Simulated assay, not measured.
Amino acid sequence: MDTELTTLTARLLAHRVIERGDPLARRALMDDGFRAELDQRLADVGLRLVENPYAEHLAVAMLPELTESVFGSGDAWMNNNMGLPRDGVALLVILWALIVLPKRERQIARVEAGKENQSDMFGAQKPLETGEAVSTGVSEDAVYADFGKALGGRTRFNANLGRLANLGFVVRRNRMIAEGPMLDLLIDYGHLAPRIIEGALSEVLGARREAAQEAAQRNGEEGEGA
């Protein structure tokens, strides 16, 4: 067990994220004794394992009680340890809201639907759906049209988007922004989601949702007409 613990701890620190399906990651999620020792090893250096049943990866983050001593306080407070400027952090939160919030709604809806239709006694232990089945990307051009000027213009927007891609928060493909392995792990859904849903981004997200529904409805009507 000691060798596997050492290997998993080193991989988490070196690679920052590990796929949930990895044998050592699965053991950390299923073996209580192994998980307890892993948690203790990470806690000894001020870290904790970060995972949630909706995410495809595991990662490590700082223990909350060490935040002030590491990041400082007052005017000296650092809002991240990845070199992201303030507009980069703002873009990160926006992309999280546009990609992860809708994904989580779909995942929760599927789980609830599964409970209603569940007939086998072991259904509750089946893995939750993740990946492309529930996660969709957003257009770079659409995000820039909505938020680009507020985030410093095209040059700053592209630079920060590149930083987020390099850090593993997002993946860029053909001018589309998709979820990266870090996006659904290092932002606290329970803490941030209510603020976004009820706060400044609520109107933008609501308008996007309505537009998507209208487009889907139009596509459906066109398909029926054909």
Rank of each mutant, 00 (worst) to 15 (best):
Q107K: 03
G153V: 03
P102Y: 12
M62V: 05
A97G: 11
A212Q: 08
M176Y: 02
R106Y: 12
T130E: 08
G21S: 13
A165R: 15
G72Y: 02
L167V: 04
D2C: 00
L92D: 08
G223Y: 04
K149M: 07
L29H: 05
D31S: 00
A97L: 01
P64T: 03
L47Q: 13
D31C: 02
M182K: 14
Q40L: 13
P102H: 07
N80S: 06
L205G: 05
V45K: 15
P85F: 13
R26L: 04
P102V: 11
R172T: 09
A211D: 09
T9N: 09
E224I: 12
L29K: 02
T155K: 07
V204R: 15
A215K: 10
P181A: 12
S202G: 10
R175N: 15
M1W: 00
A207Y: 04
N79W: 04
R27N: 09
W96Y: 15
E214K: 11
A109I: 00
H191I: 06
A178H: 14
P102R: 01
S119C: 03
G153Q: 05
F169T: 06
Q213A: 15
K103T: 06
L167N: 08
L128K: 05
D146C: 00
A113S: 12
A216C: 02
A165N: 14
R20C: 01
A133Y: 10
A159M: 02
Q217R: 14
A216V: 04
T6E: 12
A25N: 02
A113E: 15
G123N: 06
E198G: 04
V204Q: 13
G162R: 11
G131Q: 07
L63V: 02
S135R: 15
E4Y: 03
L84Y: 06
E4P: 00
L12D: 13
L24R: 02
G225P: 01
G114R: 11
A36C: 07
V50G: 08
E210F: 05
R16V: 15
G148Y: 04
G74F: 02
Q107W: 01
L47M: 11
E179H: 10
T6P: 00
K115T: 06
M121Y: 11
N160Y: 02
N158V: 05
D141C: 00
E179M: 12
A97D: 14
G180K: 09
G46C: 10
L186K: 08
A207T: 13
L29S: 04
A133V: 03
D31E: 09
V171D: 08
